[in-house]
């Protein structure tokens, strides 16, 4: 029984990625002695909020067999529009209205993606590359976007509001755990529930596994995809809003280009790029690893320009391991079959 459990664990991608994370933690701790300090851990969690939210969206799309490269542009546009409108009317209220606005804008832009993907049945990569440019174009051309240095007070307060403050006695540093971390926790909880306990969530897996079968089984494939992209648009835009609030200013191009890093994290977490396979746990672990490498290599004394190198290496090794696992499983299946035939 114990043996069987161990074997199940060892065949799980999540186990290996946790192992890598633990090893990296220990390495950083040994080199710097600063990793397990309260303020570093809080800093890490705070850095995880935005990539974590993006990753949830990217994860659901990849599981459904698609790939979305438009979410940073989509988020930038909806957050820019929200911030612009609110500063222009000199908004003085709390965070609630900005959140509602950004969710509505995000859902609308997501619906734009979803419409083309569900109706035209074109490859999602092509469509989202296109809409990504469209979103950027609207933001920079139509809205004539510029940096907004003074965002509404309510947004700024939300970005700096602390759940608690962690202190590093040794160095006298303090770090604030943003209230926004609650958004990430709630989002993870919701995503888990939706994916595991709703037919909509299972439909995402089913479509990623075999779209024709999903259609024949009676899933409404088009509607499921449409809703999926609406949700992803809303979640990504919320992530963008949080980032803007935490930075205290709206920088329209600041988020662009994040898509590759986020997708890399999701894939690193064992989510099959071909769709249908992967867990939310894996997705979050992969994202944590990416965020750690980005934030903690400095503690190891690695120059920042080496970060990209390490990220790249990590992705190659990470995806390589899962590719090897697939090969091994296939071999085992063949030999099992041979055994059955001869018995």
């Amino acid at each position: 029984m114990m043996g069987k459990k161990m074997k199940g664990l060892l065949s799980k991608h999540e186990f290996y990625i946790s192992l890598v994370i633990v090893l990296l933690c220990i390495m950083i701790e040994i080199r710097s002695g600063q990793f397990f300090t309260p303020n570093n851990l809080v800093d890490l969690s705070s850095a995880l909020i935005v990539p974590g939210l993006f990753a949830i969206g990217a994860f659901m799309v990849i599981v459904s067999g698609g790939i979305d490269v438009s979410f940073p542009a989509l988020a930038s546009l909806s957050v820019y529009a929200t911030t612009r409108i609110l500063t222009d009317i000199n908004y003085k209220g709390g965070i609630l209205l900005p959140i509602v606005m950004v969710l509505v804008f995000g859902a609308l832009l997501g619906a734009f993606n979803g419409f083309f993907i569900a109706k035209l049945k074109l490859p999602t990569m092509i469509i989202t590359l296109g809409t990504s440019s469209v979103f950027k174009g609207i933001m920079q051309g139509v809205l004539n976007s510029t940096q907004i240095p003074n965002i509404p007070e309510g947004m700024k307060n939300f970005g700096t509001a602390a759940l608690f403050v962690a202190k590093n006695e040794q160095l006298g540093l303090t770090s604030r755990m943003p209230v926004a971390v609650l958004v990430l926790i709630v989002a993870i909880g919701l995503a888990f529930f939706v994916l595991r306990y709703t037919m909509f969530g299972r439909a995402i897996y089913a479509i990623g596994g075999n779209e024709t079968s999903a259609y024949r089984a009676g899933f409404n494939v088009g509607r499921t995809k449409f809703i999926l992209y609406v949700i992803v648009g809303a979640v990504s835009s919320l992530a963008g809003l949080i980032r803007t609030c935490m930075m205290g200013q709206m920088h329209p191009t600041n988020m662009l280009g994040m898509e590759m890093m986020i997708i890399a994290g999701v894939v690193l977490g064992g989510v099959a790029i071909t769709g249908g396979d992967g867990t939310l746990t894996g997705c979050m672990l992969g994202t944590i690893l990416i965020v750690m490498v980005q934030n903690s290599l400095i503690l190891l004394g690695v120059p920042t320009y080496w970060q990209e190198f390490f990220l790249g290496a990590l992705i190659i090794v990470g995806t390589g391991i899962s590719a090897m696992q697939v090969l091994r499983n296939r071999k085992r299946l063949v030999s099992k079959k041979l055994g059955e035939e001869s018995s």
Binding site: A206, G209, N210, T212, G276
Partner: peptide, 12 residues
């Protein structure tokens, strides 16, 4: 092709 979902369990 049996119209199955290879990524899901027998049960589902």
């Amino acid at each position: 092709d049996f119209s199955i979902f290879p990524n899901l369990t027998v049960m589902e």
